[in-house]
Design a binder for these strands. Sequence first.
DNA 1: ATGAAAGCGCTAACAC
DNA 2: GTGTTAGCGCTTTCAT
Lengths: 331, 331
Amino acid sequence: MVATIIDVAKKCGYSKATVSRAFASPEAVSERAKARIYAAANELNYTPNPIARAMARQKTDNITFVIHENQYPAILNPFYSSALEAIMQETMKRNYGLFVTTNDHVRLPSGEVSIKKHMDGVIIAGQTDRSSIESFCKQNIPVVVLNNLIQMEHLPCIAVDNYHGAKCAAEHLIQKGHRRIALLEGRFSPQIYHDRHNGYMDAIVSAGLTVDPLLIRDVDANELCAETCAREMLSCPERPTALLCTNDTIAVGAMKAAMRMGLRIPEDVAVIGFDDSYVSRVIEPELTTVRIDSLQMGKLAVEMLFRLIDGEELSKWYIEMPTELIVRGTT
Amino acid sequence: MVATIIDVAKKCGYSKATVSRAFASPEAVSERAKARIYAAANELNYTPNPIARAMARQKTDNITFVIHENQYPAILNPFYSSALEAIMQETMKRNYGLFVTTNDHVRLPSGEVSIKKHMDGVIIAGQTDRSSIESFCKQNIPVVVLNNLIQMEHLPCIAVDNYHGAKCAAEHLIQKGHRRIALLEGRFSPQIYHDRHNGYMDAIVSAGLTVDPLLIRDVDANELCAETCAREMLSCPERPTALLCTNDTIAVGAMKAAMRMGLRIPEDVAVIGFDDSYVSRVIEPELTTVRIDSLQMGKLAVEMLFRLIDGEELSKWYIEMPTELIVRGTT
DNA sequence: ATGAAAGCGCTAACAC
DNA sequence: GTGTTAGCGCTTTCAT
C-alpha cells in the first residue's frame, strides 16, 4: 500500500542498506546514488517509517509529558500549561515528538499496570506516585519531575522556593501596614501547601502580629470556592484588610468577592496571588503576585531530560526555582 | 537489558505466541497459562513493547494534534487550548496516545519534507497548507480539520458559524440602543475574518445605521495592541459607545483601555468578545461574548477521526458549530 | 561507497 | 488452547 524501503531499492537499483543510509546518514552515500534514490522515493511518495526505525534503533525520538488526572484540567491547567508550552517548544527544536498524557499507565490483563513506552524519556508534572516512577526506572526510561520533590536516588526534580515566595508576599503586606492578613490556601500537594503556609506564618510571627486562625482557610483552587470563602471573611466584623492567596485563580475569586461587595482594591482590601499565571494580567487592576518562571522551569526540565537521554551526567539532581514578588495594582 | 517476550516465554515454559496472547487477547488463553505467564512477567518486570507491537500490527494507537507554529502560542492559545483539552480527554478514554506538535513535518536529506508518522490519525487545528494535508493522505493517514474549512474531497472539517455569531452580537448592541459600534477585528484566517466582518456589516446596514470606516480597525489579537487601538477610538470626539471585538483577548484589552480612561462598563461603553474563552470570566465585569463550544468541537473532531481510523463511513464531512451570544456584565 | 544478512520484539495466520 | 513460523520496515555490523 504505502511504499517501503524495498520498493525504493528495487526502483532505483540500489540495495535497501544504501537507501536507508541515504535518509539516515546521507554523508555516507555518493551523490550519484542519492540523486537516484531521492528521485525514486519521490515518485513512490516514500518516507521512512519511524516505527520501523524506532524498532531497529531502539530509540523513538519521542518524549512524554504526564500530568496525572487528579490535576485536572490538564491543558487548561493555569500553572502547568505554561511549563508545557515551553516543553513543547524545546522538544520541537530538537525534532523530537511529544506525547501528552494524563494516564501514563495502561492496565494489563494481568492486573498489573504497564507504562506506555513509545518514548525515550518522561517529564512528570507535580503529583505522582513512586510506583509510577519506579516503573519507568525498571524500563530504563529517564524521568524528570517538575514542581515536586521526590526523594529518590538519581531522580531529577525541579521544584519551587515556595516558602520564600509566601514569606515575601506576607512581608510586603505587613510593610504596607496591614495587620489583619488572611491566608486562602489551595489544597495542593503537602509539600507546596506547607511551604507556602510556613512562609506566611513566619512572616506574621516575625512581625510580632498575632496569628488569627479565623483568617486562615483552606479552599479548592477555583474561582467560585475562593469567592465564597473571601466573601465570608470580608463580611466579618473584624474583616481582613489583605488577602494572601496561594495561587492566582484563588486570588481572582477573592478579587471578585471584594469588587462585588463594593470594596475597592487595593484601598479597602489588598490581594496577592501566586504563580504569575496568565490570569494575573487579565483581571483589572492587575494582580500583585509571586512569580514563578514556569516557562524556564519547563525548559530546564527538557534540558535535563535530554542530557539523561543522551547518556550524559547531571551536574545536579535537584533544582529549586526562585520566586519573586511582582507588585502590580492590587496592593 | 529490558525483558522481552522471549524471556518470559522461556521462564514460564510457554511459547511466545501464548505469552503474546496472554497480554493481547487474554480470553484466548487458559487460566493456568495466564497465571504462570503473569508471574514470570512480573518477576522479569516485563511489559509489552508498544513499538514492536505497532510494527507487527501496523497500528500505533496514537493520534496527533497539530497546531502550526504561526498560531503561537500552542498550548496557551486561548482558543485551541480548550479544544485540545477535550481532545486529550477523549483520546485518553480510548486508551490512545496523543502527540501534540507544531511541526508535523521533518525535513528529509532529500530536501523533501516527510511527515512524522508514529500515529494512526491527525487533527489539524486551524491554519495549515494543502500540501501538509496531502502528505497525510498519501500515507493513508486520516485527517480531521478543526476550525477551518478546506475544500478537498473527503476531508472532514469542523468549522464555526462565525457570521451568525458576529451578527447576533452586533444586533444585541443595536437593540440596546447603540448607534456607534466599533469593530476591532483580529487578523485571523481570511475565512474567519470575513465571516465575522460580514456579520457585523449586515447587522449595521440592516438596522439602517451608517458604517463608519473610522470605527473599523484591524488589530493583532493580543491585549496590548487591542488596548492601544481601543484607547485611540475612545479618545475621539465622537467616540463609539460599544466595542465589538472578534475575540475575547481583544475584548479584554479594550476593557482595560476603557477602565483606565475612567469609563464605566457597560454604562459608558459596552464591550463584546468572541469565543467565550476562560478570560471572559476572569475579567470583572464578566464579558458578554459569542460562545463557541470548543470542548464539544474537540470532542467531535476526535469522534470523526476515530470513525475514520476504524474504517467506518462519515455521515457528513462538514460540521458547522453553532454560535450563541452569552450576555454577561459588559453590555 | 555499497551489499548481504542478521536482527529489533511482537502479531497473526495456520497447524495441531 | 497452544506452538510454529513468517513477516512488519528499518538499521547496522561485517564484508567486499
